[in-house]
Each structure stands twice: as structure tokens, then as C-alpha cells.
């Protein structure tokens, strides 16, 4: 898994690629939490290049979502590959996240 973080005007963009499972999900959690600790409230996570996401990764996303929502921020997802979209729905988490087709739409939504 690779994570790149870009500060945009409206939000902080996390672009992730590769596989997210319980062996590396904490890296994602650490990256998100470090920014939230530094005061980031608006987050976009681009999952276009993610080819695998298990509950370990979902847990980190939900954890970060809870933290930013507490302070009136939000964590929004974009560019979900179909299989990742399926996982989100099966896990019953699709209603919690605002999901956008593209990065531009997700960042622009803030």
C-alpha cells in the first residue's frame, strides 16, 4: 500500500494505492490520525488504485470519519472500483460515507 497526501484549498486529499488489509491498515490509520491531530477536518480519500480492502481498512476509515465528524468535518470517498464499492455496501457502511465519482467532485464538495 502507498499513501500520498496532498493539501488542497478545500480539503486534504489522501490518494491510496495497492492492498489494504489487517497487516497494513494501521499505516492508513496512522496517516489519517496524524493529519487529524494537526487540525485537518476535511478529508477526501481516493480509492481508485486500491485493489483490495478488508474490514481492517474499513475500520480505520470509520475511526477517522468519527473523529472529524465530532468537530463538524467530514471524510469523503471517491473513485471506488466496483469491487471496493461492493465491500462497502456489504459491510453496511455505504450510508455513512459520502462517495463521489471523481476526485474533483469530492474535493469540490467541501
Amino acid at each position: 500500500m502507498e499513501i500520498s497526501v496532498t493539501e488542497m484549498n478545500r480539503a486534504t486529499l489522501f490518494t491510496i494505492s495497492g492492498r489494504i488489509d489487517s497487516s497494513n491498515a494501521n499505516q492508513l490509520g496512522d496517516a489519517l490520525n496524524a493529519r487529524i491531530d494537526a487540525g485537518t477536518l476535511n478529508i477526501v480519500v481516493d480509492l481508485e488504485k486500491v485493489d483490495y480492502l478488508s474490514s481492517g481498512g474499513l475500520r480505520e476509515l470509520v475511526g477517522a470519519l468519527k473523529r472529524v465528524k465530532n468537530d463538524d468535518g467530514d471524510l469523503r470517498l471517491c473513485s471506488l472500483p466496483p469491487r471496493i464499492q461492493d465491500v462497502l455496501e456489504l459491510a453496511g457502511l455505504d450510508a455513512l460515507f459520502q462517495v463521489f465519482e471523481t476526485q474533483v467532485l469530492a474535493v469540490g464538495s467541501f
Partner: peptide, 10 residues
């Protein structure tokens, strides 16, 4: 939302 149980559910 409780993260536990998602794995089994999946």
C-alpha cells in the same frame, strides 16, 4: 457503528 462483527458479516 461497532467495527466488531463486520468480518463475520462479510
Amino acid at each position: 457503528i461497532r467495527p466488531g462483527g463486520i468480518g463475520l458479516h462479510l
